[in-house]
Amino acid sequence: MALLEVTNLGISFGGLQAVSGFRLSVESGHLYGLIGPNGAGKTTAFNMLTGMYVPDEGNITLDGVDITGKTPEFISKAGIARTFQNIRLFKRMSVLDNVKVGMHNKVTYGMWHGIFRDGVFRSREKEMDQKAMELLDVFGIADKADYVASQLPYGEQRKLEICRALASEPKLLLLDEPAAGMNPNETLELRETVRKVRDDFGIAILLIEHDMKFVMGICEEITVLEYGKIIAHGDPETVSNDPRVIAAYLGGDDD
């Protein structure tokens, strides 16, 4: 059975059917892309997967656990982490603390240990610091651990967001337009980072992206959405040659 199994997922806002009949099957260690024109429902699909929206219909199963309509914190614990289209770091907290918040449910100790600062507290905090530094090191930003997050340059903020998401040790990582607003060099670097994450952490990655070169160059399987419906699915080559996809992106005759 696949890691993530989505069947017939749908949601509407008032009279607008934002997404319908969405299905997806994700295996560990693979890279998936979700593309489509603006307003196609990509982020809405992400929001349903992470519990921000409760779907009207359909099913989401992660690793055999039904997570349909569960709360974001339940889904986070179950193993899905995400980044955002517009970066949503905890801007006033340090780089290190951002990553440590990501570990919220992974390294735990009771409040009283925290208040009394006993051995449990100190060893757990040390463990967290160490893990967080290792993660930051993978992304080459360990030397900036003490910076306030908002001081980082844009590209590194993107990296930190991925880092924070990985801190929760997810089985599936969702990246919402990771290359948005990046210059070509940063995009190139990001591609390497995403590959590295998949290889080093062995997790599944599903990403939304508008940069076609980026998506085609990195994803093994692509799903194309238009007006909330899947219009194509397959490997990059199949998808890029699909007449409906070309029509959706370039505008074509409706027939």
């Binding site: 992470t50 921000m52 709360t71 974001p72 914190e73 986070s76 614990k77 982490a81 995400r82 955002f84 949503r88 770091l89 905890f90 801007k91 006033r92 907290m93 603390d97 440590k100 918040v101 990501g102 919220h104 449910n105 924070r164 929760s168």
Partner: peptide
């Protein structure tokens, strides 16, 4: 830290579990 995170961005904090 969780309190600070909630104070800055409730939605993102929720997604951190």
């Amino acid at each position: 830290h969780a309190m600070k995170a909630v104070s800055e961005d409730r939605g993102a904090a929720q997604l951190m579990g």
